[in-house]
Design a protein around this nucleic acid. Sequence first.
DNA 1: ACCTATGTTGGATC
DNA 2: AGATCCAACATAGG
Length: 281
Amino acid sequence: MPELPEVETIVRQLNREIKNKTITDFSCSAPKMAVTHKLADFQRQIKGKKILNVKRRGKIILLELSGGLVLAIHLRLTGQLFVRKSTHPQDPFNRAIFQLGKNLELRFNDLRLFGQMWLYPKTQIENNFDKIQKLGPEPFDKTFILQNFKNILQHNRTKIKALLLDQSKISGLGNIYSDEVLFYAVIHPNTPANKISDEKIRKLYIGIKKILRDAIRAQGTSVDTYRDIRGEKGQYAVKLKIYRRTGKPCFRCGTKIARVKIGGRSAHFCPKCQKRIMNYE
DNA sequence: ACCTATGTTGGATC
DNA sequence: AGATCCAACATAGG
């Protein structure tokens, strides 16, 4: 499910709703999701811990707990975090429940079971957690300047679509927003990253920030299973220009939108506007 | 009914 | 280095 805007939405809402709550109990019906511990150990470690703060790095949610622990959560494709009153009916595909006192629960639901949780001491998260160590720059980090982005593109021959999806190059973009930013910047998804002109790099850089910011404002895109912590849809789906619009008219020129596979993922683009550079497929 | 697709990512293989 | 295929898994849609 979630890319940067969806994860950011969830993180902001969690801070509003469950900061300073204490995890009074934990249960989980999918042991593989809690990757760092056997279930009993995971439960023992997390029980009684207070949620001090919620952060995000890339698409990874980080709950800072008392006792110097951090609970890291990755929702992968279909994970959801819901905050529910205990009286609320059970959610479909619920895999884990963090009890927050008598009346409140943080529920981890996941249809496809790809989601993962890690529980580590804070120092280890910061210094040794490879999932975070490997991440590229945050699009909204002040140090992520145009020149920085330019360097990344100029040192990679890979197709720009694949580069944008590669979390070690730049973090936070997934299949939806990588398509959207390439449409915004009018770049064919198969263009080798190091063949993109300075002008287009600049446009892409601007587009990444603009589109992610707009999507966060709209509380994310619910084109499939994404929901926020109240179970509500994000509102950005109606603003999508290209993603999953195969065969529909391009908003710029009316040409039918095309779809190609790049690295096993679908890339949507306008074959007229986003012309591929000759000599490169 | 069968085939394909799905918001992720990590590993194997060429 | 980089591309491609496959793995985890469950469901929906053509």
